[in-house]
């Protein structure tokens, strides 16, 4: 049970930890303080408990695929907020966002929703797997190990980003966020395919011999760039869209922001 509990927890924690670490690192450059993290964690925990408790009812929706649909829409919602967040971040580039509470709200929404989704699964697993006495210790240890690895990777990531020069930190942070958010679109599309809300197709290719999703590296790539070994055409094209849409938004906002700055300068 240890290995499987490590994998389950690691997968969920890693996704949330990466999102958290990138946002915290970017927040450092916008000088908004760290209060919002506590809010995110608290809201995320409450959200996870509520979502986990109601998952059995949600699953019954839409002829038994409510879980997929709900998860997909949470993912797409996080994606949308992330795109807005990135646009705002680029628009105000170097300015401190201390007084902009709605900016904090964006970050809290993103992280707490991500935590809600990932946390619900962890809670379900915990209560299912520990119901049997003889699994208790190994499941618990597996969860500790999985969570520690996930959080450590997140922290090292954060450390790396924070120690980069300001401009590069913003660029790399945004690039990572774009990849993570594209991964969310791909996950959402996979869930919708699984629920038969998007047409099912034959997989385009199979790279599992090259990098299997079962391996630790595969898990990291899944969390970081939404890696899939056997994507279908719809999934791949949605991933591409998920990647290019924020790039387009950022380019658009950037040109606006530069123009705005120029006007401000000439004034």
């Amino acid at each position: 049970m240890l290995l499987s509990s490590v994998i389950i927890i690691l997968r969920e924690v890693l996704e949330a930890a990466l999102l958290f670490s990138i946002l915290i690192a970017l927040a450092k450059h916008s000088a908004v303080g760290n209060h919002w993290i506590l809010w995110s964690l608290a809201l995320g925990l409450v959200g996870a408990i509520i979502y986990g408790m109601n998952l059995s009812n949600i699953s019954e929706w839409f002829d038994g695929v409510g879980q997929e649909v709900a998860n997909a829409f949470i993912q797409l919602f996080i994606y949308a907020v992330l795109v807005i967040y990135m646009g705002v971040q680029v628009y105000f580039k170097d300015q401190a966002m201390t007084s902009k509470y709605w900016f904090l709200v964006l970050m809290i929404v993103i992280t707490s929703l991500a935590m809600t989704r990932e946390g619900a699964e962890i809670l379900l697993y915990f209560f299912s797997a520990t119901r049997r006495e003889n699994h208790y210790v190994s499941v618990l240890i597996g969860m500790i190990i999985g969570a520690s690895i996930g959080i450590s990777v997140g922290f090292l990531f954060y450390y790396l980003l924070v120690n980069l020069r300001s401009l590069w930190a913003l660029r790399i942070g945004l690039a990572l966020l774009i990849l993570v958010s594209a991964g969310m679109v791909s996950q959402a599309s996979l869930l919708l395919i699984q629920a038969d809300w998007l047409p099912a197709q034959m997989p385009l290719w199979d790279t599992s011999t090259f990098l299997s999703e079962k391996t630790a590296m595969g898990q990291l790539m899944y969390a970081l760039i939404g890696y899939e070994a056997t994507p279908t055409a719809i999934q791949a094209s949605l991933y591409l869209f998920g990647l290019l849409f924020p790039v387009g938004i950022i380019a658009l906002v950037n040109s606006k922001s530069i123009a705005y700055n120029k006007i401000a300068e000439t004034k």
Partner: peptide
């Protein structure tokens, strides 16, 4: 207990709550 149907090969993942049922589409 809950269970999670999981397959890397099928690319599917779904929690099946205890005493409930769930639907998964697979293929082609």
């Amino acid at each position: 207990e809950d269970e999670e149907f999981e397959s890397y090969e099928l690319n599917r993942e779904k929690v099946i709550i205890g005493k409930r049922k769930g639907t998964i589409f697979i293929g082609p």
